[in-house]
Design a protein around this nucleic acid. Structure first.
Lengths: 128, 128
DNA sequence: GCTTGCCTTGACACCGGCGGCAACGTTTAG
DNA sequence: CTAAACGTTGCCGCCGGTGTCAAGGCAAGC
């Protein structure tokens, strides 16, 4: 499979695939003309990459999942390293959620105070 | 007040202050030697900027707050434009929270599945 | 006069996942 | 023969707030 076909089937660009390869996430042989030749299996790998990126993982985080797939597992998340990343990411998300909730409260409070202040000082210009 | 003093009092770097000035957020006169001279009032402005940046605002978002302070208000958030930004930011945060919660659920599910799978296939290497 | 420590502007580096372009080789169809 | 449609490598741009360095002007104490 040439890079264009893989890109189309995976719903990405050739530029993206070269980038993944350059960073060791996907693999290819080279034909005599220098063209990359991809195995069918790489399609699944690309899908895994895309799915994890969409969730907020970066390429380094994703590497263990790819390795897990290459090791023959049906999914990329059952290997110890992948599980470790999942745990860490879950922690990160929880931390982020906590911070974001704090920010939300602050914003909400600040917004209400500001509106209250404007009403006290009779500066309402927009209808309630 | 010279830039070094303002930087120290505001807890930032001179580089940062020049950047803010370059982007129209703080103001200075120039002494005959070319040095920036800052009013005391700018200290408060810088504090406002830093506080909002810390919450996740970008410099463009912050501009109305600074204008509000300069208009003589005790706080930067009571002016209509600031309130509008606050509303928008609150919406953004809510959207972000929603997405993050979705991600959290996915991760949690995926993690549990992976662990369950490993236990089914007797690959436990770490003590429970 | 010399050093030290302020200040000035300007410009590059960073991070990460690409987009996009240049300049060029290959294959295939007409 | 040529044009179109693929492939290759390499490099710049982006985004935003800062760090950091260069190369130089000023202030003040010895």
């Amino acid at each position: 499979m040439l890079i264009g076909e893989l890109a189309q089937r995976a719903g990405t660009s050739t530029r993206t695939l070269r980038y993944y390869e350059q960073h060791g996430l996907i693999r290819s042989r080279r034909a005599t003309n220098g063209y990359r030749a991809f195995d069918e299996a790489e399609l699944r790998v690309v899908h895994e990459i895309r799915a994890l990126l969409a969730v907020g993982f970066d390429l380094d985080d994703i590497r263990p999942f790819v390795a897990c797939l290459r090791a023959g597992h049906a999914t990329g998340d059952v290997c110890p390293d992948s599980v470790a990343v999942l745990r860490r990411k879950l922690d990160e998300v929880d931390t982020c959620l906590a911070r974001l909730n704090t920010v939300r409260e602050k914003l909400d409070h600040q917004l209400n105070e500001a509106i209250a202040h404007r009403e006290r000082t009779c500066l309402r210009r927009t209808a309630p």
